[in-house]
Computed example of a mutant assay.
Amino acid sequence: MSLIIENLYKTYGKKNVLNNISVNFQAEKIYGLLGNNGAGKSTLLNIINNRIFDTKGKINS
């Protein structure tokens, strides 16, 4: 089973946190998220886990 994220956006008020994120996570592989503080890593994981909702985009599993 893979996880496909297409054109994902998340905004808080006027601040864009995630802007047009597209990625395809393949089954049976290990991935890491790297980035500076405030890059959107936790926001992306929270959207994938349905803890928060995206502004626009699609996640297929």
Results as ranks from 00 to 15, higher is better:
residue 47 I to S: 11
residue 30 I to R: 14
residue 26 Q to N: 12
residue 46 N to L: 06
residue 33 L to K: 12
residue 26 Q to F: 10
residue 57 G to N: 13
residue 52 I to V: 11
residue 59 I to M: 09
residue 21 I to R: 03
residue 49 N to R: 07
residue 4 I to D: 13
residue 3 L to N: 04
residue 59 I to N: 05
residue 6 E to K: 13
residue 52 I to E: 04
residue 46 N to F: 04
residue 40 G to H: 02
residue 10 K to H: 14
residue 40 G to S: 05
residue 57 G to K: 11
residue 7 N to R: 01
residue 24 N to L: 14
residue 39 A to D: 08
residue 11 T to M: 12
residue 41 K to M: 06
residue 22 S to I: 05
residue 35 G to P: 03
residue 16 N to A: 15
residue 47 I to N: 09
residue 6 E to I: 04
residue 36 N to Y: 07
residue 55 T to P: 11
residue 41 K to H: 10
residue 56 K to G: 11
residue 34 L to D: 05
residue 48 I to Q: 04
residue 11 T to I: 10
residue 37 N to M: 05
residue 10 K to T: 04
residue 59 I to K: 09
residue 10 K to G: 01
residue 31 Y to D: 04
residue 9 Y to G: 04
residue 51 R to K: 11
residue 35 G to R: 01
residue 4 I to P: 00
residue 20 N to D: 14
residue 21 I to G: 01
residue 18 L to I: 00
residue 14 K to P: 01
residue 49 N to D: 06
residue 33 L to N: 11
residue 6 E to Q: 12
residue 56 K to S: 15
residue 48 I to Y: 03
residue 28 E to K: 15
residue 19 N to M: 03
residue 22 S to F: 07
residue 52 I to F: 03
residue 14 K to L: 05
residue 38 G to L: 10
residue 33 L to W: 10
residue 26 Q to R: 10
residue 4 I to N: 12
residue 33 L to G: 09
residue 10 K to V: 05
residue 53 F to I: 10
residue 50 N to H: 12
residue 15 K to C: 03
residue 16 N to G: 13
residue 41 K to S: 06
residue 6 E to C: 00
residue 48 I to K: 05
residue 29 K to S: 09
residue 22 S to A: 06
residue 29 K to G: 01
residue 53 F to A: 13
residue 59 I to C: 02
residue 13 G to E: 13
residue 7 N to E: 00
residue 20 N to F: 00
residue 9 Y to N: 12
residue 2 S to F: 00
residue 28 E to W: 06
residue 52 I to Q: 06
residue 51 R to N: 14
